[in-house]
Design a binder for these strands. Structure first.
Lengths: 205, 205
DNA sequence: CTGTGTGAAGCTTTTCACAGCG
DNA sequence: CGCTGTGAAAAGCTTCACACAG
């Protein structure tokens, strides 16, 4: 299976293709060409063919791609053909919205624990879970072999939380706090910062 | 003022530099070198110097950059040295979290109206605002000269909402729905999709 | 014919390395 | 000296264009 040779920018486009294929499948479409998939995802047909070619030959010449087959292949490549366990740190407005976000469970991304350092919140129920104190973070992560964490705490606390997560053996972090995390390079970090997104949009207005 | 010649990838890095500079300023640091700024933001020193050079010469040879001055320049370039008015469409868990998100107002990004199509939600208070019905969308946007909208509705409704926003004269959209929006190319779209972010992380695990 | 898969070409972005300024 | 600003080189990514398969 090709790994290191695949550009990261290609991997980041695969979820978009997957999402489009899921929708086509729901509509009952059976076959799709790179040109059609391109129109729906906003990419060029050539780019889609090239991206897919990093992982194998999934299409049929003269015909296109079988939607369900390509969907399954992308799920396998992205490893989303199985269930993942996730912890959320921070039970503020954002943490609560994340726990209730239906698209996560729908895609096999299961939030199985929530943590907060506010004693007033610890013990309260949240979407079928109980908010746990930070001191239980490492034990919970290790006992349940959790690999992915979502950071939803205020910016000042983000790096400290990230350090704790690293110590607990987490290998992937989705960071919602507007802060650049300094972590070992073997930990994968993705950043979601609405302020940064808006600030690079206002440049063009 | 340079515009079209500046690569988009450069513009998208500026908010990260700005964020780091704000923190340095809060700590009382007065001067910073490209190497130091690089360490904090995770970029190379050369890249930072090159990025900044698209907009002018902000540093002093042998010394570095004056933190406050560079911060002000970046704010001016990104046009975040003024206040922006924003509408949020969708008053679910995510929309509510966005309305309460303190980093927005702190950075001059003011949510001034919230809309939802659920009659059970319309009229309810939310963070100092009243949830408005969708039929008031266009009037509100036009009367208050709003340029930026945040879409926080379920995936199936996203494209329809985007079309309404385009009709109402919106020029920038931040889309939280897991859907690729088809919009006129004169409308700037940024996508935030936690599922997609996680799905490209699981590839590497 | 239609539409994939893919080398090669073309373009963009990053890194290098150093002149030159304070 | 130390560190910026920047051409030039290197690396990376996208598009082109066509052989080839169904």
């Amino acid at each position: 299976m090709p790994r290191s040779e695949v550009p990261d920018v290609v991997v980041r486009r695969l979820p978009t293709y997957l999402m489009a294929l899921e929708r086509m499948l729901a509509r009952g479409e059976e076959v799709v060409s790179s040109a059609e998939l391109g129109k729906v995802t906003g990419m060029s047909a050539a780019q889609i063919r090239k991206d897919l070619s990093y992982f194998g030959e999934f299409g049929r010449q003269g015909l296109g791609y079988e939607v369900e087959f390509l969907r399954d292949q992308l799920k396998r490549i992205l490893q989303v053909d199985r269930e993942w366990h996730i912890v959320v740190v921070g039970a503020g407005a954002l943490g609560r919205a994340l726990v209730h976000y239906r698209e996560f469970t729908r895609r096999g991304l299961n939030i199985v624990a929530v943590f907060d350092n506010d004693p007033g919140k610890v013990g309260l129920p949240l979407g079928g879970l109980i908010i746990q104190p930070m001191c239980e973070l490492e034990t919970t992560i290790r006992r349940r072999h959790i690999e992915i964490a979502i950071i939803a705490v205020p910016p000042d606390a983000a790096q400290a939380v990230a350090d704790e997560l690293a110590l607990a053996g987490i290998t992937a972090v989705l960071n919602y706090a507007p802060a650049t995390l300094r972590l070992d390079s073997d930990i994968h970090v993705a950043q979601i910062d609405p302020v940064a997104s808006l600030q690079s949009i206002t440049y063009y207005l």
